[in-house]
Amino acid sequence: MTKVKLPKFLIASVVFYAIIEALFRLEVLNGYILHIINQSLIFVILAASLNLINGITGQFSLGHMGFAGVGAYVSGTLTTIILKLNPTVTSNMGIFVLCLLAGGVAAAFIGFLIGFPSLRLKGDYLAIVTLGFGEIIRTVFNNIDYVGGPRGLLGIPKFSNFTLIFIAAFLLIVIMRNIIQSSHGRAMLSIRENELAADLVGINTTQYKVMAFTIGAFFAGIAGGLLAHLIQLAHPTQFGFIKSVEVLIMIYAGGVGSMTGSIIAAFGLTFLSEGLRIGIRALADATNLPIGGEWRMVIYSLLLIFIMLFRTEGLMGTKESRIIKIEEAD
């Protein structure tokens, strides 16, 4: 029996891309909405890459935005330098992709280093160490004058666009899915499930924990680079602990271990966040009351608490949508 398997995810992605692009061309979607879609896709990369570390391998990390920061600063510095040397380079996407990859590799290297504490530490202790690493990364950016110190790295060229961000997110999901649905991915899952038992069926748990951190950090670095070249800025506060928690909220809201959940939550929460920003401002204007933007984070933090109290498994639990999952042949 031969089965022609349709690459469902490819089709779904192409349809998504075509619709968004068409709506934008037809001016149904304005630049602002497209910007939020771009941000959502970047958060898809961040959430799905944290999902590999946290959801699949079970290594709790609170410093994920630190990796994104490394990617943002490294790629941003590179493109800014190149632009200064040769101002005609703006149309050369190849150079930008190389700079992004360089940022990803730098972040992966940091992730590799941070993977080592995970060999000795578990659960909340590991969370604290990754938080500490994230804060150290942020402190370092804050103190290097060459990248702007506390002012941030300014004047990054606007290389990121919808097509490029979309392709990056698409590739990330395919690569993550193919890893998770392979012997390597199952080895990572076994560490989450029971590390000692994984060890005692011959899994080199050390290798897989470091691998998860390295791969996760690589993609976070790419996402950071895309973000920096979208908003043309890399700032230490973008990559601090609170931002890492926002990504964490996404994977818990979506369901730890489910990439489908990460994707839905990244879109849902990015739009919710923007909606709240606009809604709160409108409410403040309409009522003339001093309602500040902090209420957005008040709602966010309550959301996190309620998810943990009442729906710990998140939206999807550990389930994957049929669109993303590869059906296994027997």
Partner: peptide, 27 residues
């Protein structure tokens, strides 16, 4: 010490892992 959130089949497959040779890239 079972991998309780994985299927019975996956529990077994994981124990086969170290005998496999495919690298990350070919996966």
């Amino acid at each position: 010490r079972i991998f309780s959130n994985l299927t019975a089949l996956d529990n077994i497959r994981i124990a086969r892992h170290f005998n496999t040779r495919s690298g990350l890239v070919s996966s």
